[in-house]
Amino acid sequence: MEFGKLALLGFGPEGWGLVLVRAGLMTLAVSVAAFVFGLGLGILIAWARIGGNAVLRRLAEVYVVVLRGVPDILVIYLFYFGGRQVVTAIGTGLGFEGPFDISGFVAGMLAIGLISAAGQSEVLRGAYQAVPKGMVEAGRVVGMTRLTLFRRVIAPQAMTTALPGMGNQWQSVIKETALVSVTGLVETMRQVSVAAGTTQEHFLFYAAGAVIYLCITTVSDQIFRFAERRSLRGHPQGGM
């Protein structure tokens, strides 16, 4: 590869630099949105599995098993091809006038979020169960309400246990966004494919794409590690 080709990654009018940066930011944005959506749903699922009634528990279990057993790309395709009917059904049900559409961003966020919720709920459930039973009992004995107990005893400890697992879930979310281009969202993977196809410089652009993903995963990994260290303050194994 001649070095002249690197100009294709530049920021001039003939360079793809600017659009690649923009696509990288889009990957980041859709990842954050999907992770947060997955977290909300994951909390509900974990809660259903821990404290729900038999029906809820069963439903939550089935959800996790199905979403973890089916290839992500099939889930995204299903969401893309079948999602609109569902959205329209919900929309008309709520009394809005159709037609309805969801943007590529929202579709990508929902699809990845649904997948991620299954994994996140497992991490959260594991973390909850790792809280020593004695502590919960102690809290109950001193007369804490359920909310206080959760807020002051369970959540702080569970969070420490859950952080590494949540870090892994976040990393998966970033990588899964590479599959959502079918929803029409121009994120990193779609942008490098277009650029590679147009310029016929496949290696150059896929390598550039890989670097963008590495930057996002590395920086966020550092942030999660920092959070982990902070959350371990005051613990016997802290300061590792």
């Binding site: 990588k175 966004t177 590479a178 599959l179 993977m189 496949h202 896929y206 890989a210 590495l214 590395t218």
Partner: peptide
């Protein structure tokens, strides 16, 4: 740190 899809494309087309 990178998606499998990009690894596949790099090996196949790259």
């Amino acid at each position: 740190g990178t998606p499998l899809l990009i690894q596949i494309f790099m090996i196949y087309y790259g």
